[in-house]
Simulated assay, not measured.
Amino acid sequence: MDEDEWDNFEVAYRAAYRPVLQFLRRRLPPGDAEDAAAEVFTVAWRRWGDRRGAPLPWLYGIARKVAANHRRASGRAEELGKRLETSATESTQASAEDDALDRLGAARALARLSATDREVLLLVSWDGLDVGDAAKVMGRSRAAFAVQLHRARVRLERMLAHVDRAPVREQPMATEGRRR
């Protein structure tokens, strides 16, 4: 962005921040609006050269999408909370030891994957992004990310199949430098 464009962005930011924040406050919980506003202007800064028309309506368009993403994320968090609550109820019926060992085994398997495989899996399963959004985060095409996700899932399944259910002290994680 050249200096004139930067100046134009700064003028638009100063004029539009409060209206965009108010727009977001009407659509999001109070604690989320400021973070969402920061995200709106981050996106706007990256895409400043692509804008058409007056800045405020364009920024509202970005804010609408950011708010929708925040609502989806909140919905996923609520759904995760419900699943965890249900899981906690169900796990009390199962053996606490078996549950703990299963989680440790999954943690061990995940730790043995490459950092990239872990990131790919966590973006989709933990962060709840769809393949297209996760691909953007990783800077890959949707197709390349889908292949990478499939391969990471296959590697994780293989790791899970080979994870021993022995206590942690008897089976160190790969990050400690030794494997059994």
Results as ranks from 00 to 15, higher is better:
L121W: 00
I62C: 03
A134Y: 01
L28M: 06
R103I: 06
D102M: 11
Q93T: 08
P172W: 05
R72C: 01
A143P: 01
R47D: 06
T116R: 12
D99C: 06
T42H: 13
T86E: 15
D130P: 06
R108G: 00
E10I: 14
G177Q: 08
L104E: 15
S87K: 13
W6T: 07
G81Q: 12
T86A: 14
D7I: 12
D7Q: 13
E119P: 02
T86Q: 14
R27Y: 00
R158Q: 08
V20R: 02
G105Y: 02
V43F: 04
E176M: 12
V20I: 11
R142D: 05
I62E: 04
K82C: 03
R14L: 10
R108Y: 02
M159G: 01
L129F: 15
E34Q: 15
M1T: 09
Q93G: 11
E90W: 06
T175E: 08
R46P: 02
E10M: 15
A146C: 04
R52K: 15
H70T: 10
V163K: 00
W58N: 04
R26F: 04
R178G: 04
A54N: 09
Y13C: 05
L80N: 11
V163M: 06
V40I: 02
A161D: 07
A16K: 00
R142Y: 01
S141G: 15
D164A: 14
G49M: 05
L104Q: 14
D35I: 01
L129G: 00
P55E: 04
E170T: 09
Y13T: 04
E34T: 15
H162D: 07
A16E: 09
A63Q: 03
W126T: 10
A166E: 11
T42M: 11
